[in-house]
Computed example of a mutant assay.
Amino acid sequence: MTSNSASSSPIPVHGDTLTALQQLIEVVAQLRSPEGGCPWDLEQTPQTLIPYIVEEAYETIAAIRSGQTEAIAEELGDLLLQVVLQAQIAGERGDFTLEGVARGITEKLIRRHPHVFGDVEAQTIDEVRQSWEQIKAAEKGETGKTPRLSTKLDRHARTLPPLMAAIKISQKAAGVGFEWENIDGVWEKFHEELAEFQQALEHETKKRQEEELGDLLFVITNLARWAHLDPSAALQGSSQRFVERFSWLESAIDRPISDCTLEEFEVLWRAAKASLAKSSKISD
């Protein structure tokens, strides 16, 4: 990972790639054109497109996990569209351009990898990480002073998906000693928060109920952390199993599912769990 002449400058991008990117830029510009553009695209703002950015990011992740190369390429394209569309709208407002976005991230990558594009040596991943943090601190004017941990925690809370943020925040806090002595303390806190949530549901306002639910979920993520489990992966797995069982249930009946009684649902659900569990064991 030391610097060398072969890696002292960025690898050039193939002309066909630049042509394809330019075509995408022009298509998006036409979609946003007041003359002959698309009414839906013309109505969009950076704020209205936020849900699509999140959706496309998660769909890209799902495609990568599936290992299906065609799906990965397609979802990366959908995600790239969101980047180009945001830059197009910003350009129309005179805020920034896609060129500026690309130039900015390129300069940042070169600046933060002096062991590749400069004369700094970094032999291990830890050395690379340490160099990255030092450069990042210098960029933010934080060199020579210890940044407040709460500033980092606040950034996690505002920018990461909720479950990921909860794990990151609790990990960082634990790293400076703000931690239970053992998992028994986490379980005690869980039961405390569960009781408070139940109390809020019975006697408090919606706002208080939401706050207590958040506290309960935060403790659950800490239980996952202590058990070295990924709560996001666990919840995603549960959602997928629910869908599989519901699909089995729908296939097992010959009438509209809304006509089923609660008792029938219970019987079918147990059958679905047993059948899918058996199939899983056979495939394993």
Rank of each mutant, 00 (worst) to 15 (best):
I11H: 10
P12T: 07
T19V: 10
L21R: 13
Q22P: 00
Q23I: 10
Q30I: 01
L31T: 02
E35T: 12
G36A: 09
L49W: 00
V54F: 07
E55W: 05
A62Q: 11
A62V: 02
A63C: 09
R65Y: 04
G67K: 08
T69Y: 04
A71M: 09
Q82V: 01
L85T: 05
Q86M: 13
G91L: 07
G94P: 06
G100Q: 15
A102T: 12
R103S: 14
H113D: 03
H115P: 00
V116F: 02
V120M: 06
E121T: 11
E121Y: 02
I125C: 03
D126N: 05
V128K: 15
S131W: 00
W132M: 09
E133V: 10
K136E: 13
E139Y: 02
K145W: 03
K152C: 05
R155N: 04
R155W: 10
R155G: 01
A157I: 07
L163A: 05
A166V: 01
A166P: 00
K168E: 15
S170R: 10
A173Q: 15
G177N: 10
G185Y: 06
V186D: 00
V186T: 04
E192V: 08
E193M: 08
L194S: 08
Q199N: 14
Q199C: 05
E204R: 13
Q209A: 06
Q209H: 06
L213N: 03
L213T: 03
G214D: 11
G214E: 08
L216T: 14
V219D: 02
I220Y: 07
L229K: 13
P231M: 07
P231S: 08
Q236F: 02
S238C: 08
S238R: 12
F242N: 09
R245H: 11
A252N: 14
I253L: 05
D254W: 01
I257W: 11
S258R: 11
D259I: 01
L262Q: 10
E264P: 02
E264G: 08
R270M: 04
A271Q: 15
L276R: 05
K278Y: 04
S279H: 10
S283P: 00
